[in-house]
C-alpha cells in the first residue's frame, strides 16, 4: 500500500508539474506584406512598419524563457516563377513589455537567422520581422507568396 501511495504521489506531482507551465501559443497578428511592387525595383519593409511588417504574438508563462526560431524563405513564388527575398541580420525585433511599441521595440536589430532567447512577459512577447524583395526587371506580374515559419519552445530556464 505504501508503494501504491508513493506512486499516486509521484503521478500527482507529475501532473502538477505538467499543468504548472502554461502552454505557449503563437498568433500571427500580421503577415509580411510587400503590397504592389514594380519589376526591377527592390522593396524593403521595415520591421517598424505597422500593418506591413510581420508580427507574431507569443503567449505563455510569465518569466519563462523561450527559444525563438524562424524558418525563413529565400524566395517568394507564384506558379513557375519566383522573386528573391532577403532577410538581413537586423530585420527582427522583440518586445516583451505589456504594451509593445513597434516603432521602438525593447530588443531591436536582432538576427532572424539565429535562435533568439527571451523571457515571456506579462502580456506575452511580440516579434516583428521586416524583409526585402528584389524583383527582376522582367518579373512576371502577379501575386507571390512564401511561408515564414516561427517555432517557439520553452527552454526550461
Amino acid at each position: 500500500m505504501r508503494r501504491i501511495r508513493r506512486l499516486f504521489i509521484g503521478v500527482t506531482l507529475s501532473f502538477l508539474l505538467a499543468a504548472g507551465s502554461t502552454a505557449q501559443t503563437i498568433t500571427v497578428n500580421n503577415d509580411l506584406v510587400f503590397g504592389d511592387m514594380f519589376p526591377g525595383v527592390p522593396k524593403t519593409i521595415s520591421k517598424y512598419t505597422a500593418g506591413a511588417a510581420a508580427e507574431f504574438n507569443v503567449r505563455g508563462t510569465n518569466g519563462a524563457e523561450v527559444s525563438i526560431q524562424f524558418t525563413l524563405p529565400t524566395k517568394m513564388t507564384k506558379i513557375g516563377v519566383s522573386i528573391q527575398m532577403i532577410f538581413f541580420n537586423t530585420d527582427c525585433a522583440v518586445d516583451t513589455r505589456p504594451n509593445p511599441i513597434q516603432a521602438s521595440p525593447l530588443f531591436d536589430n536582432l538576427n532572424p537567422w539565429s535562435t533568439l532567447l527571451y523571457r515571456i512577459g506579462v502580456q506575452g512577447l511580440t516579434i516583428y520581422l521586416g524583409g526585402t524583395v528584389v524583383p527582376r526587371i522582367v518579373q512576371p506580374p502577379g501575386a507571390y507568396t512564401a511561408d515564414i515559419t516561427l517555432t517557439v519552445a520553452y527552454t526550461g530556464a
Binding site: 507529475s14 505538467a18 522593396k43 517568394m76 524583383p135 522582367v138 512576371p140 507568396t145 512564401a146 516561427l150
Partner: peptide, 25 residues
C-alpha cells in the same frame, strides 16, 4: 502526462510574405 506536458512546450506558427508584382515595362 509527461508526453502531453512536453507536447505543450513548443508551438509553431506559419505566417506569410506576400507581394503583388505589377505589369512589366
Amino acid at each position: 502526462i509527461v508526453v502531453a506536458g512536453s507536447g505543450m512546450a513548443q508551438d509553431v506558427a506559419v505566417g506569410q510574405a506576400t507581394a503583388t508584382v505589377l505589369a512589366t515595362l
